[in-house]
């Protein structure tokens, strides 16, 4: 049901742009892209710099996934339990570039016996890798529309991506890869009972949106040709803040671009912020040397503490009777507990 509503939402968005786009060129070709970009940038900056960034990291709560650095003769897992900033950077690099933690994934089964089994489960990892890397390459490839001159690596990427030269123009592997990965992720969500149970509409919607973007992109390149020169003119215009909407831009382009705009605008308000959040996760991006170097908590406030003096006052007689040393010999009746004796916090 959630999946259906998400799918309907994406179809409606597509239809609007496809049908209205060509007759409201300025809105769909200029206003919406600028607005979407503004929401995207503003939203991400707000989230990273203000919402997350302003909240301190009060405790050094790294998850240690390997041997600590302790005695010199014990091999230290400098990547999984980093004690230096360099180690943390490496740990994060593996996390962000290779999805290290996801790679550990296993599938558990409890069989008769009982016997608990752990099987490797690489579907999620593989689909996620394919999805994200394809997406990145696609975004970079698209720079050829927005830049003049086109940066050197873009044609290179294009060449590699179209290496197999299937069809004319060459089919991009990443386009297919993205679609394939999104489909696997979607099927996994539908077919795996546990994952289906935890899924929200907000999990299906971005998947369909990305699929929609990929499909419209592939359609445009191979089947419903749109005038590429006009598209480039328009994109460069947007990038240089001299917007123009030339004729010859087909409805499929408006649909493609509109879905991208929706994705951009939706991004900062959704789980998609994991793209930025992954860099800020305190269980991963902290050094694990919190016994060696003190971690500072900016809001560390005083709390009520039961001091030794209070303890001895309560138990002094019993302590003396059993031979435990005490600081003050006599139970001091007349004197009240001195103010300031409650040593709370430095």
């Amino acid at each position: 049901m959630k999946a259906v509503s998400a799918l309907v939402a994406v179809i409606v968005l597509f239809a609007i742009a496809y049908m209205v786009g060509p007759s409201a060129k300025f809105v769909f070709g200029v206003a919406v892209p600028y607005a979407a970009m503004a929401v995207f940038l503003g939203g991400i900056i707000y989230r990273v710099a203000f919402k997350w960034g302003k909240a301190p990291v009060p405790f050094a709560i790294a998850t240690t996934c390997g041997q600590q650095k302790s005695l010199p003769w014990i091999k230290h897992a400098s990547l999984e339990n980093p004690s230096t900033t360099g180690g943390v950077i490496l740990r994060m690099a593996f996390e962000v570039l290779t999805f290290r933690s996801l790679f550990r994934n296993t599938r558990v089964a409890v069989k008769d016996g009982p016997r608990v089994t752990y099987d490797g489960e690489w579907v999620l990892w593989a689909a996620a890798m394919l999805f994200h890397w394809s997406f990145l390459v696609i975004v970079l490839r698209h720079m050829r529309f927005f830049t003049e001159p086109v940066p050197f690596f873009v044609p290179l990427l294009q060449a590699v991506d179209g290496f197999f030269e299937i069809g004319i123009p060459a089919l991009y592997l990443t386009g297919v890869g993205l679609l394939l990965a999104a489909s696997v992720l979607f099927l996994r969500r539908m077919l795996d009972a546990q994952v289906r149970y935890i899924s929200l509409m907000a999990d299906y919607f971005p998947l369909f949106l990305v699929m929609g973007i990929a499909i419209t992109g592939i359609l445009m390149r191979h089947f419903m040709k749109t005038d590429i020169v006009s598209v480039k003119e328009m994109a460069t215009g947007l990038a240089t803040f001299k917007p123009v909407v030339p004729d010859g831009v087909g409805p499929i382009f408006f649909a493609h671009m509109f879905l991208v705009c929706v994705l951009l605008a939706y991004f900062p308000f959704s789980k998609l912020t994991h793209m930025a959040g992954v860099f800020m996760s305190p269980t991963r991006n902290l050094r694990c040397n919190s016994r060696e170097v003190r971690h500072i908590n900016p809001w560390n406030h005083p709390v009520r503490v039961h001091t030794y003096a209070e303890y001895e006052d309560e138990f002094r007689d019993k302590m003396i009777a059993c031979g435990l040393p005490v600081d003050k010999k006599e139970t001091e009746e007349p004197k009240k507990a001195k103010a300031g004796e409650k040593k709370v916090d430095d």
């Binding site: 909240a55 301190p56 935890i198 929200l200 789980k271 912020t273 994991h274 305190p282």
Partner: peptide, 15 residues
């Protein structure tokens, strides 16, 4: 707690 603020937002329910 940045942990809390972040963890409330970024879970993708990948399972």
């Amino acid at each position: 707690f940045r942990s809390f603020s972040l963890f409330m937002d970024i879970c993708v329910r990948c399972g």
